[in-house]
């Protein structure tokens, strides 16, 4: 890469970063607007639930923090100022700083999300290529049927089915929680963690494959019908050589981009799946925060997930910029002008 191309990439990245920041502000505005518009009074809802255990002093402090008597615009500015200082407030349900709750839940969820994200990505590309190679034949039909079926299956029902089969009938996996009940954190082994995350991760992987697989199939078919593949076949390259030399290069980049863009869907799926398996991750915390009117936590979770989603899109954009030779050539063309 020439210096000009690097420069161009940096400018490109900076532009994307600015847009991402603007989008985050917009997300915070929308979220704040929605939560402010709610007829549910978080203080009332929570004081009602935990009336005995909350002192008047605590209530006053919460009322002051959320500025119950202040106009929404001022409240938003207060909140945004605190967030920039790294303070997202105190969770009403967990009685701990929101940042602390989120980082713990996010750690649990990440374990789940990363595994299923990788598995669904790799399997999606593999199945997509397979379907394209055997286009119209049995393998293709099975893979397309699978993609169609899983795209129409709600993640929570699939989770229920897996729970029914593997936990209730076969008793292979525990029914819930990310660690065995009554065990201290230090005693939990990696094997325990894996055992409890297996079914949720499986659910998310199964539903996550279809988009990538169908997309890869289309791209691969385009590629196999191209002139250069025809020429390669004429040269006597085998099917496998064609896939490795010509196919993969064309297919991987869009697949990776799509996979980065699907982070939002996987997180959305994790919300219901964690609920079914009572896996204590970010998704479950979001549901708890929503039902329990834990406004600071709900705000915090929305911002963090939006950050992760935009981060994924940003990574995809940058990756595209680095890997796609057209981008580099574009840079050199600018240099020549």
């Amino acid at each position: 890469m020439t210096l000009a191309a690097v420069n161009r990439l940096i400018i490109y990245a900076a532009k994307k970063a600015v847009r991402m920041a603007a989008l985050l502000v917009m997300v915070s505005l929308i979220t704040f607007g929605l939560i402010s518009a709610s007829p549910i009074d978080p203080l009332q809802a929570n004081a009602g639930q935990a009336a005995g255990s909350m002192s008047q002093e605590q209530l006053d402090r919460l009322a002051e923090y959320w500025g119950v008597d202040e106009p929404p615009v001022k409240r938003y500015i207060n909140w945004a100022g605190d967030v920039l200082k790294g303070d997202m407030g105190t969770s009403l349900l967990y009685r701990r700083p929101v940042t602390e709750v989120i980082s713990q839940k996010l750690f649990n969820s990440l374990f789940l999300l990363v595994i299923s994200w990788l598995v669904s990505g790799v399997l999606g590309v593999f199945l997509g290529i397979l379907a394209a190679l055997y286009r119209g034949r049995l393998a293709d039909r099975l893979i397309r049927g699978y993609a169609l079926l899983t795209a129409s299956t709600p993640a929570f029902w699939l989770a229920l089915l897996l729970l029914l089969v593997f936990s209730v009938w076969l008793k292979l996996f525990p029914i819930g929680l990310s660690v065995p009940i009554g065990m201290e954190a230090a005693q939990v082994t990696a094997a325990d963690r894996l055992r409890h995350a297996f079914l949720p991760a499986l659910t998310l992987s199964i539903t996550g494959i279809s988009g990538t697989a169908l997309h890869t199939r289309e791209k691969m078919i385009d590629c196999l019908e191209s002139d250069y593949v025809l020429f390669a076949r004429a040269r006597g390259e085998s099917r496998w050589e064609i896939v490795r030399r010509h196919g993969l290069r064309n297919v991987l980049l869009p697949a990776i981009t799509l996979q980065f863009a699907s982070i939002s869907e996987i997180i959305g799926g994790s919300v219901v799946v964690e609920q079914v398996f009572s896996y204590p991750g970010l998704g479950q915390a979001a549901v708890t925060a929503g039902t329990g009117s834990d406004v600071p936590l709900l705000m915090g979770i929305t911002m963090i997930t939006a950050l992760v989603v935009f981060g994924g899109n940003f990574a995809a954009d940058i990756l595209y910029g680095i890997i796609d030779p057209r981008m580099r050539r574009g840079g050199e063309a600018v240099e020549e002008q």
Partner: peptide, 19 residues
């Protein structure tokens, strides 16, 4: 912006906003 918030989370937020 809309695409940036996971769909279910946005649904939870709107549902919360409307009680």
């Amino acid at each position: 912006t809309i695409m940036g918030i996971p769909h279910l989370l946005l649904l939870i937020l709107i549902s919360y906003a409307l009680g």
